[in-house]
Amino acid sequence: MSALLLLYRREVSLLWAGGGGPLLACGFALAVTAALPLAIGSEPVRLVPVAAGTTWIVLALASLLSLERLFERDHEDGALDLLALGPPTLEAVFAVKTAAQWTAVGLPLSLAAPVAALSLGLDPALAPLTAGAAALAGLAFAAVGALAAALSLGSKRGGLLVAVIALPLYAPPVIFGAGTVTAAQEGTSPGPALALLAAYALFACALTPFAGGAAIRNAQG
């Protein structure tokens, strides 16, 4: 257990310090948000209806940024081989890396999400709901994204490949996450969408470690 805790602290500090951390992700998210009014116009009539949806697109894109380095870094310098030799299984290593990705990228992004949504004209009363749903969606993005990163280990075009694999699988969290906020915006209960979002996030966290462990083992071969 302490080995996993140590690994978690190492991963978080690497993600935090390595220049690919929360600041970069949040900066990217806000930059994309700022580009939206430039593209479609500044009138609230246009921005308010797409505020929730845009926020989720931005979250999905921003959570892709640091995934490429999540396993590739350790694969290149041999740290992944050491981790494979150690007592924790690769499935546990994968789960810890997912958790670190969520802590260092998903949670900071869940604070940037209400900022982005409010700047596009979302009702401020919905800010806590947006942050909570963004945190849950971030968990799903981290798990599915880490799996995509583990699968593309050893390929020559890592970053683009991770995005191409992960984005079709991001459809459910994007639908349910944006659906949660849109439902609240339209005055209906956000409960069902939020419950489905949580279900997908937990399902992804429970199953991806097995696929991810197999993918890492294969890349080391």
Binding site: L151, S152, S155, K156, L161, A215, G221
Partner: peptide
């Protein structure tokens, strides 16, 4: 894309 991106055939197959 994934099947084509990894050079080692057996690794590409398993991924």
């Amino acid at each position: 894309a994934l099947r084509a991106a990894i050079e080692d055939e057996s690794k590409a197959a398993r991924a």
